[in-house]
């Protein structure tokens, strides 16, 4: 189905699922890379939309409205995760910087060459599955900050507030997260 615009704005809530279920799911999947979590977020979105149906004015399309709810649900989810996460257990273990550079700050593990076409790669489900595996494999705090910044559209000021950390700390954590992810993808995908 192509871009159902405002013509579906009057669809009954039951019909929402067939009209927008897949679109919302792909959107949630992109932000979590976790199919089970994505499904739950979509379910929460529909039920929340149903409860606040009267606030939908029809000035935007139903799809836009549902996606806005889904975005909030996703951020709420990650906010809860951040809250439950112990602030301790700070990098230390599994610090990618220690493994990558010597005392003089030179590369120990040199970046190897990658040959891949981004256009082909981006639609390869297997690649995104590998990204998910890598996120699951790095320390929780790094996985969390990577998800907020690189999968969701959060800015660093928003992240510092959500995670209650300083800006410098946020940049450092992001640097470690990106290096960890790059190393993992290097091993599990690009040089495989």
């Amino acid at each position: 189905m192509k871009e159902p615009g405002k013509k579906n704005n009057s669809a009954r809530p039951e019909e929402w699922v067939d009209l927008y279920g897949d679109i919302l799911f792909r959107f949630a999947y992109g932000r979590t890379l976790n199919p089970e979590l994505a499904e739950d977020l979509v379910q929460e979105t529909f039920l929340s939309a149903l409860r606040s149906k009267s606030s939908f004015k029809g000035s935007s399309s139903l799809k836009t409205w549902l996606i806005a709810i889904l975005k909030n649900k996703t951020i709420d989810h990650f906010r809860r995760v951040a809250f439950e996460q112990p602030a301790a257990g700070f990098p230390g273990d599994g610090d990618p910087i220690i493994d990558l550079f010597d005392k003089q700050g030179k590369w120990i593990t040199e970046p190897t060459r990658w040959e891949d076409d981004p256009q082909k790669l981006v639609e390869n489900d297997q690649f995104w599955h590998t990204v998910q595996n890598c996120i699951a494999g790095i320390p929780d705090r790094l996985a969390h900050i990577f998800t907020l910044r690189e999968l969701n559209e959060m800015t660093t000021p928003e992240i510092t507030e959500l995670m209650d950390i300083t800006q410098q700390n946020c940049w450092t954590l992001l640097h470690r997260a990106r290096l960890s992810m790059k190393q993992c993808l290097n091993v599990k995908w690009f040089t495989k």
């Binding site: 699922v17 279920g21 897949d22 679109i23 919302l24 799911f25 792909r26 959107f27 999947y29 992109g30 932000r31 199919p35 499904e39 979509v42 981004p118 790669l121 981006v122 639609e123 489900d125 995104w128 690189e150 999968l151 969701n152 559209e153």
Partner: peptide, 18 residues
Amino acid sequence: LLDLNKKQPDTIHHSMNL
């Protein structure tokens, strides 16, 4: 790649369905 995932999830993950 990550930007495309943020901007066009519907296109990139077109084979994924609820």
